[in-house]
Design a binder for these strands. Structure first.
Length: 594
RNA sequence: GCCCCGAUAGCUCAGUCGGAUAGAGCGCACCCCUCCUAAGGGUGAGGUCACAGGUUCAACUCCUGUUCGGGGCGCCA
């Protein structure tokens, strides 16, 4: 409808151009907005205000000329000029009633578009280190990334979802050592657990499993393990530093010691068991959350393929790598970054950044038209250097879009509940899902703009009332289902074709408002997809549910008049369909009974 | 110190890439079920869009500065 009106205006402008009233080119993108106020009709265009100056005429005068030149249309009932020169379009009732038939015809496909047809987009999200379970912060990235991917899919893109697995870095070695030390403790050794080690219960669980399956095959006296290591930092119960050392040097030395004492084969076993156990857990967690990937991309295989060396060579060939202090530096400052960055350390190891350059180069080489990364907002400083690297390698950095997600802060009883009391660990995603359910979690996570901090009210998420937007929207869906059940119980007849033939009976103001809301859905999906803003859809669904509840409260669907009843049933079913489609994009279920 | 994000009703937030009288939910004060689930609907009060300049026919929106809040500035990942 919007494009139809734009086309009408464009024709009018071309007509005026022919008369010499306008000079220059007709704008390709005619402004056409949903009117905020019903008094302003259905759509409004500010085209006359924009062109007035160039045309050397007053906005209202120009608006009158445009309206006069407007071709007729069955869909338009009335055109008015208002305010400083807005052109307001009032749609013919038949035009917005037609949306009911479109919805019933297209069903689950209603709202899907072809905008991105033929274009491939990759969305990489979550990508948390497999060193522990996902926490509530990752949950927001998961819900957001999955919804952005769904939205892009809905507007026609071919979407490739990917999780980048950091299975090669230093943190993984620290995890392996943590598991091994817990295993030694399990075998009766007494030791000072490193301050930088991973302390979660899941580490002990993996250690216990190794003992259960392999007995003492990995035992080593603690005294040998810790002999002549750099001093660790030691804290007391209250977290005060009682012994000052170098915790980084300590843990790195522990990693080396573990490799030496265990030998490569046995060390690798513990490392891989830890990695696979945790990765399996993350995979299950996300699958239960309705988040699935086309690919889990391993950093280790990236390294093994030589891609990291290749990327560094490519930067070097382009003249942006230099040696200093024994390390290799990428001259990212040549592309607007604050300072240059190390890609190969003095000890010969490549940095995480080097892997990331290689990964992004590899993404580009796979030929995606658009590459989207979803990151925690704390990584924003990282964007310039990644874009710098792509640019240095001769790639177009605009093909990469980085979307930032702020932290979610949990509230319970009006109090912050972010940290669990004991180990200072974050509340896990699994705990959150268990407490509030997947639907509420998915919805709440995307309710706010992603770059906004999210206050996640646990009590509200669990409450079964209109205050809870998830229940509110789902309830509208369930209500329609309930009406259908009533229909059967009362043994009333229903004829969809008869309803379609009598849509003109939908003349109540509440019905009109509901029809307008329904017709907006495809526009909302498109805007939410292109702007990567799932919250627009969440807000829309609330508004749609509100329009339905208001209607339901005011008028009966199951009236005795067959034609009116069928028309209203069709309208209700169309509403149910749109709610179902919208919730599906958000990864939220549409229950038939509540 | 430098950089990024935010600041809109008592609270939590929208505001469609500059447009008409700035919206919604919660909270507060009221009202509405002999009737398809009241897990609902409605009415009212509530605003100097942080502050000060600038650009424009038009600024919550764009630019500059200031204040406040959050985050980032490793040969960590």
């Amino acid at each position: 409808m919007k494009t139809h009106l734009q086309a009408l205006v464009t024709q009018a402008l071309q007509h005026l151009l022919g008369e010499g009233l306008l000079s220059g080119a007709v704008p390709t993108d005619v402004p056409m907005e949903r009117a905020r106020d019903r008094n302003h009709g259905d759509f409004a265009s500010a085209i006359a205000l924009m062109l007035a100056k160039a045309a050397g005429r007053k906005p209202r005068e120009l608006a009158e000329r445009i309206v006069a030149a407007l071709p007729g249309s069955d869909h338009v009932a009335k055109v008015e000029i208002a305010g400083p020169g807005f052109i307001n379009f009032f749609l013919a009732p038949t035009a917005y009633r037609a949306v009911v038939e479109q919805i019933l015809d297209r069903g689950n496909a209603f709202g899907r578009g072809e905008l991105g047809a033929g274009r491939r987009v990759q969305v990489e999200f979550v990508s948390a280190n497999p060193t522990g379970p996902l926490h509530v912060g990752h949950g927001r990235g998961a819900a957001f990334g999955a919804t952005v991917a769904n939205l892009l899919d809905a507007v026609g893109y071919q979407v490739h979802r990917e999780y980048y697995v950091n299975d090669a870095g230093r943190q993984m070695n620290i995890l392996a050592v943590s598991i091994w030390l817990r295993y030694l403790e399990h075998c009766g050794e007494r030791l000072q657990f490193p301050s930088n080690g991973y302390r979660g219960d899941y580490v002990r669980a993996i250690a216990a499993r190794i003992y259960a399956e392999h007995g003492g095959a990995y035992v080593m006296p603690a005294a040998r393990v810790f002999k002549n290591l750099p001093q660790d930092d030691i804290q007391d119960e209250a977290g005060n530093l009682v012994t000052v050392g170098d915790k980084e040097a300590h843990i790195d030395a522990l990693v080396e010691r573990a490799k030496t004492l265990l030998g490569n084969h046995r060390y690798r076993f513990i490392f891989d068991l830890g990695l696979n156990t945790i990765l399996d857990d993350i995979r299950d967690d996300l699958r239960e959350f309705g988040v699935v990937y086309e690919k889990w991309y391993s950093e280790r295989t990236l390294e093994a393929s030589g891609a990291v060396e290749k990327a560094i060579d490519r930067l070097r060939d382009a003249g942006y790598v230099y040696e200093q202090d024994g390390a290799s530096w990428f001259r990212s400052s040549a592309f607007g970054d604050e300072k240059d960055r190390v890609v190969r350390r003095e000890n010969g190891q490549t940095t995480y950044f080097a892997s990331d350059i290689a990964y992004h180069l590899e993404k580009f080489e796979r030929g995606f038209d658009l590459v989207i990364d979803v990151w925690g907002a704390d990584h924003h400083g990282y964007i310039p250097r990644v874009k710098a690297a792509l640019q240095a390698m001769g790639e177009n950095p605009d093909r990469l879009a980085v979307l930032l997600v702020q932290f979610a802060i949990l509230y319970r009883g009006g109090e912050r509940a972010q940290m669990s009391t004991r180990s200072g660990e974050f509340v896990t995603l699994r705990e959150l899902r268990r407490e509030v359910g997947n639907d509420a979690a998915r919805f709440f996570y995307v309710m706010r703009k992603s770059e906004q901090h999210l206050d996640f009210d646990l009590d509200l998420a669990k409450s079964q009332s209109k205050d809870n937007p998830v229940y509110y929207v789902q309830y509208a869906h369930a209500r329609v289902c309930s009406v259908l059940r009533q229909l059967r119980e009362k043994e009333l007849s229903r004829d969809e074709a008869r309803g379609r033939a009598h849509l003109a009976l939908l003349t109540e103001p509440h019905e009109e408002l509901l029809l307008v809301a329904l017709s907006r859905y495809p526009e909302v999906v498109e805007a939410a997809a292109l702007n990567h803003e799932p919250h627009q859809l969440a807000h829309y669904l609330r508004e749609l549910a509100n329009a339905f509840h208001a209607y339901y409260n005011e008028h009966r669907v199951l009236v005795s008049d067959d034609a009116l009843r069928d028309a209203r049933l069709n309208l209700s079913l169309a509403t149910r369909q749109v709610i179902k489609n919208g919730l599906a994009l958000l990864g939220v279920s549409a229950p038939e009974v509540m």
